[in-house]
Design a binder for these strands. Sequence first.
DNA 1: CATGAAATTATGTATGCACATAATAGACAT
DNA 2: ATGTCTATTATGTGCATACATAATTTCATG
Lengths: 233, 233
Amino acid sequence: MTEEDRKTWQAVQDEVRRCISQRIWKPGELIPHEAELAQQFGCARATVNRALRGLAEAGLLDRRRKAGTRVTLNPVRRAEFSIPVIREEIEGKGQRYDYKIFLREMRVPPPDVQARLQLSGGISILYLQTLYTADNLPYAFETRWINSNAVPDVLSADFRSLSPNEWLVREVPFDGGDFTVSALTATEKEAGVLGCSQGASLLALDRTTQHDGQIITSVRLAFHPGYRMHTRL
Amino acid sequence: MTEEDRKTWQAVQDEVRRCISQRIWKPGELIPHEAELAQQFGCARATVNRALRGLAEAGLLDRRRKAGTRVTLNPVRRAEFSIPVIREEIEGKGQRYDYKIFLREMRVPPPDVQARLQLSGGISILYLQTLYTADNLPYAFETRWINSNAVPDVLSADFRSLSPNEWLVREVPFDGGDFTVSALTATEKEAGVLGCSQGASLLALDRTTQHDGQIITSVRLAFHPGYRMHTRL
DNA sequence: CATGAAATTATGTATGCACATAATAGACAT
DNA sequence: ATGTCTATTATGTGCATACATAATTTCATG
């Protein structure tokens, strides 16, 4: 190989990526160690380290001290989706975004939601049902529980110009949560609101959001039929 | 602040993360520049850079030369899923993995698949239908098109001990593709194979895989009802 | 031969320095 | 005011060096 022109870490990364994808270095195989690559590429070891670290994070390489670096045998393929911020998603398509709050009341959540929010029984919290529309067509139906004990300000929030989702994003910091994608069969309620037939297949996103140990909100978004989540690998 | 004990980049990152999540540094706000933080934390600027770079990649910080670093206003929340390798997924739950190939023939793909595979019309390629089972219960139904012109070896592959998916992962390198999640309504065929009622809602993953400019395969996985994709944020 | 201590080795992290690059801010001229 | 050039500044990258850490290999010892 003996390259002569000095390489930036990006160039090194590209070459290494090429060696992997063309199977010059085969899955499971040990690749030259950093010092050697540094010499081949005519750069410092730190530069090679920078390049390889990135590939390891991406799951293409397995690195272990002393053992060396090898091409991942069965690369865990990961897909990264950006979680939709509905207003941006709709406006990004050049459509008119709007929403309508159907329901807003204090209510004792059912047991499964209680568990998700780590609440003890009998406590009533804020419950909201919101329909998002794109060009006045139903886009997604949101059912949301907000732990109003953890976020008392929410009770006096005005959701007329800012949806509950955006209000929370703006007012409440968060540091964790979880996220589930599933397919659900439209109930009568969902069918009516989304303007589809009862029994239609809808993509559903369930999400909880937490901050400082407390679970702030639990939300389900049921999208109109035909909605897709897409990403490149 | 004036910390006295020297910090590793991870410790710096944790502290910065804390400042963000506790809104000591508010969304949109400019944070101290690297040199200043380095002094505060008692470490080199490179160490601070390492810490902040990671947070920027994670989407918590926006960094621009000269302009400085600020807390992301509307952090694009990203969810990362590991794409299921069905055998591992099933065996990981302690269940018995198996699969059965229903169909394996050369066939001219319909127009939409032709487009996805960037094929010109009239060319027939390999088409496969496979059912994956967990403890003998239907788990997912796979319909797959393989560009057998790009991968001629596939025609002589023996799929008895290795599923088409795993055969491809092992034999054909890849460097890109795309990935779509949607909800579908079970057709009569899918219902029959998966043992659910026709019209049931199923989670579907559509995926294409490419290598060196060519599209290698296009596959749809329809999961049994109740299947979920889950991740932590 | 088994066992565990010690040498070896590849990656991981930290530092100080230098220079590159992008973007702003300010000076200046039209 | 408006546009253009220039200086300034924060981040981005690279290098040489040093030491830390984890894991393997070697080797002495019972």
